[in-house]
Design a protein around this nucleic acid. Sequence first.
RNA 1: GCCGGCGUAGCUCAAUGGUAGAGCAGCGGUUUUGUAAACCGCUGGUUGCGGGUUCGAUUCCUGUCGCCGGCUCCA
Length: 660
Amino acid sequence: MPDIQVKLPDGSTKVVPEGSTVRDVASSIGPRLAAAAVVGRVEGALVDLDAPVRDGQAVEILTESSPVSLDVLRHSAAHVMAEAVKDLFPTARFAIGPAVEDGFYYDFDVERPFTPEDLTAIETRMREIAAEELPFRRGELDRLEALDAFEGQPYKQELISELPPAEAISIYTQGGFTDLCRGPHIPDTGRLRAFALMKVAGAYWRGDSSRPMLQRIYGTAWWSQKDLDAYLTRLEEAEKRDHRKLGRELDLFSFNEAAGAALPLYHQKGARVLRLLQEWERAELYRRGYEELITPHIYKADTWRISGHYDNYRENMYFFTIDEGEGRVTEYGIKPMNCPGHIFVYKSAVRSYRDLPLRWFEFGTVYRHELSGVVHGLMRARGFTQDDAHIFCTPEQVVPEVQAMLDIVDWAMGTFGFEYTAEVSTRPEKSMGTDEQWEIATANLFQALDERGLPYEVNPGDGAFYGPKIDIKLKDAIGRTWQCATIQVDFQNPQRFEMTYRTAENTEAQPVMLHRTILGSMERFFGILIEHYAGAFPTWLAPVQAVLVPIAERHNGYAREVAGKLASFGVRVEVDDANEPMRAKIAKAQAAKVPYMLVVGDKEASDGTVGVRERSQGDLGPMELGAFLERVYERSPLPRAYPPAGPLGGHPVELTDFPE
RNA sequence: GCCGGCGUAGCUCAAUGGUAGAGCAGCGGUUUUGUAAACCGCUGGUUGCGGGUUCGAUUCCUGUCGCCGGCUCCA
């Protein structure tokens, strides 16, 4: 048999007999590589180890150390799970089973929902299948054969009928289970060593709520038990950071059944943090040429008819009617967005091109009736406050204004050290306006991003009903991404509300409206920060910055005196004068994640100092109050000392002047 | 909204077809403390809410509200 030559990634070539497979190439390089090989890449395409290689092809052997091999493992794990389900639930019908981030899932149509016990049984069966080290074998069928092979499997039939009719359809078999699949797969089920089934949930076939609901089992799989354990530990860590849990533990906010679902109640400490975020952002916006507006929370239904919300957003809105007497009934809608108020302010005067751009912001609280199944703590609530702004400008000003917004995003994310990415969303099905308007608006967004050199992805059809948008996603401390800032171009509302301005030529023209948020929802951003910092806010944002810890009862007076001085300089302090040993007070302050504990005893009282303990560094020793104040204000991005706040809890402290 | 799970004191959790218990928190007292929790006592729950089955339900059924995990949607 003649030899052929293949190219390896390091640039060298390898001579192997004709008819060799990827596995043969690996073997010819070395037995250890052959043993470690998972899949191959031939001419850039992922293939099974069984796949043949041809003369002149570029061949790469991928082992467990290659990240893509993990996806292959997980996809194979989904097949093994499907086999286990087939064994245990013979009437099950199979949908799809892809690898996803950190794991895999498979959707099944079964007679009854899976129980946790079912999951255990399926997992046990999977371990048996893995122990059998069954090879994955690829096969090819034509369309008719495939339809025949998957008789009685309506979901597979649907998938097959959508494949290109002329092309061969690949199937994979391991043990007694055959699935429609593009591949590739791990060589045999024995490679599936570290895995776990995580949860079961309902999922619509093809994500369409009008189609049948299937049972989805999520699992995770890793190359080693160590990796699996690390993943499970990571999940536990994320759970500890859960803002809903920390929100309760740190007394930041709560929910009340009687108040209504997804309507957060901010306690003193939570309100402080939200207010601090607003102070921080407000100062910066003023610096950047914005003005603040305050507008109503409810508007007559006619307003929402003009804006298009009545037709396009109704199911998310709260409407109510009010009896005006004499049989007159007026319908109002609670605002889900802040735009109408800002538009009415615009329309309150004749506007000139000299006025533009007008940059108006509002911390506007909006209400949206979110589906009951989607609400999630502060991250997805029914009432929330947007750091909303609308820029009214000429068409020529759109690109620079969008860029200025991207600048603000960069400033805001930089404050917290968040990295972020951009996504552009284009025209959705349910929308208003002409194609031309959408094209211009979308092009403007692309131009702004391109000129700024900010990379982005495109989400076709994901725009708002009135215009395309740029969404910013940030990455938190444990690598999760969150949507915050959004920038939207709107040609619709200026037209619908008949907004105009006088041009230099003394003609009437229509302004362009830009909608934007930077943090998005203050509450969601708050939630993100809680999880990002695991509740331990930086000093400038901490609801309580310092707790005075008197050692014995006789030190309470001095503690209150010090607290009063610090409070008069805007430090947020508490005095813990409980009848408890100081060790207990320190433990409580640590648990409350307070940045500083100020221990005061005989020494401090006579020296006029405080014993500073920092929450993560421990005891820093005695410090003069002035030095401590400097420490508190060090690196604070707040524009100035936030207005004096009395201590929370404990006894009121009189504000006194700080001695020079 | 849909699928599944859950709902016991402020919080974390226990118990049973015969009518509920612990720790923390709270309150009272003792102690007066030097960097992650001192001691004693007390209070506290129509077991989310409504209906049903039952001699009897918190435990079983049902409806409803809420929460949790997904789907869909979204700031």
